[in-house]
Design a binder for these strands. Structure first.
Lengths: 229, 229
DNA sequence: TCCTGTGAATGTCTTCACAGCC
DNA sequence: GGCTGTGAAGACATTCACAGGA
């Protein structure tokens, strides 16, 4: 029952456990062993047990974990008891794709608005999401500290847009911009860069080509692309 | 001049160094110190030096690294000397956004085709990318082991689509599907899941809310969202 | 017997601190 | 003096192995 702080590596895996638990619920399972959960989420049993022990010891020896209870526990830990509205900066192709992606709303992240500077777009809708001018941002965010900002803008303006979001009261940012973005202490940010992912893949693809036929390594470290089990 | 294998963590940072070096070239800088490169890429100087030492010792003490040379070195290490064609599975909103994203082609990843099962889409173009039927996949890939596959399909069909890509001869996959996808040994895969990123952000947002006003932690581990310096 | 919870061992990554070269 | 290259130390993460409860 270690109630200490949850390690970052564990936090990054909790959403994957949650996804597996959703599937189990849909399948009608009531309990799940660390072994089974590990297979469903793509890890190994010892890690599942260690991770879950950080949330408190709630499994039953000889049986496993209660799917329902575990799901609630993880949702609570991740702060998913409440909805977290999302504001997307950038109404380009990516912003449009995100607006039309149901996975956000379905998982408790309703999209509040798109912010764009293009006068032709302001006042229109993308999917059913309204497009607003940057000036509307503070009003949209209000004093809700739970709003998450998404940067779907070109790298060149990413820093400026991030600054605007932070001054509007946003405390958490997800950036798709291919640029280094700095945020003040106390603001959380995660980055996703498509081209960067391809470059990393390129490295391992090249390595495997030159290794052609050679025995394949077994590592499965965090930033390495997975290689089949 | 440690010529040992490059650690995975280092590989994941090389693209960021590369981006910084591109900026430096544009600015006309000929040399760069580990200190400066660290600031530009968002790390610290010791890590930059350690990372670069894995590529061989090519800096000049008292001066720094040659921007040009370092750029070539990293490009070579990442296998970016050659172009790597990309095939996108899924012509939905995300697939469309990726087709219209210039960052792929600009960085050496020309998009060869989109694969979709919708008869209305097959034969048309998204941006200037042709849409093909799944059956065309083997022909598109040919015997080029350098093609990268992108999964922009719903989670439910991701595994089947991945299997199809692998049997068509693709050895590297980037998956945007919110699902666990298994690939055979020797195939590299990286995953990006938008909703998962929001869930992780939610955790830290919640933590910071309850900490309101408390001293902010200083960690900057790999999977934690960055918090400003 | 089955499965969890956890200390100990192992492996990996990051930071420190300084020797050595320009 | 300035900066790189690197062993050593420290922090962190994962896996092992087994005690102990259901």
């Amino acid at each position: 029952m270690s109630a200490g702080p949850v390690p970052d590596a564990t936090v990054a895996r909790l959403p994957l456990y949650l996804r597996a638990l959703n599937d189990l619920t849909a399948h009608g399972s009531n309990t799940v062993s660390s072994e089974r959960l590990a297979r469903l989420a793509g890890f190994n049993a010892a890690m599942v047990r260690k991770d879950l022990s950080h949330l408190g010891s709630w499994g039953t020896r000889g049986v496993g974990y209660s799917v329902n209870h575990l799901e609630g526990l993880i949702r609570h830990e991740l702060g998913l008891d409440r909805q977290r509205p999302v504001v997307i900066a950038g109404g380009g192709h990516l912003g449009q794709a995100l607006c039309n992606y149901r996975g956000f709303r379905d998982r408790g992240f309703p999209i509040l608005a798109v912010i764009d500077t293009d006068p032709d777009k302001i006042g229109t809708r993308i999917g059913d999401i309204p497009v607003h001018a940057p000036d509307d941002l503070p009003e949209l965010v209000g004093d809700d500290p739970g709003v998450i900002g998404v940067l779907a803008v070109p790298g060149g303006v990413a820093q400026a847009v991030a600054d605007g979001m932070v001054s509007a009261g946003i405390h958490a940012l997800l950036s798709f911009a291919p640029a280094v973005v700095e945020v003040p202490v106390g603001i959380s940010m995660r980055k996703v860069d498509f081209a960067l992912e391809l470059q990393i893949l390129s490295f391992y693809a090249q390595r495997d080509e030159t290794d052609a036929g050679a025995p394949v390594g077994l590592q499965l470290a965090s930033d390495r692309p997975e290689t089949g089990s």
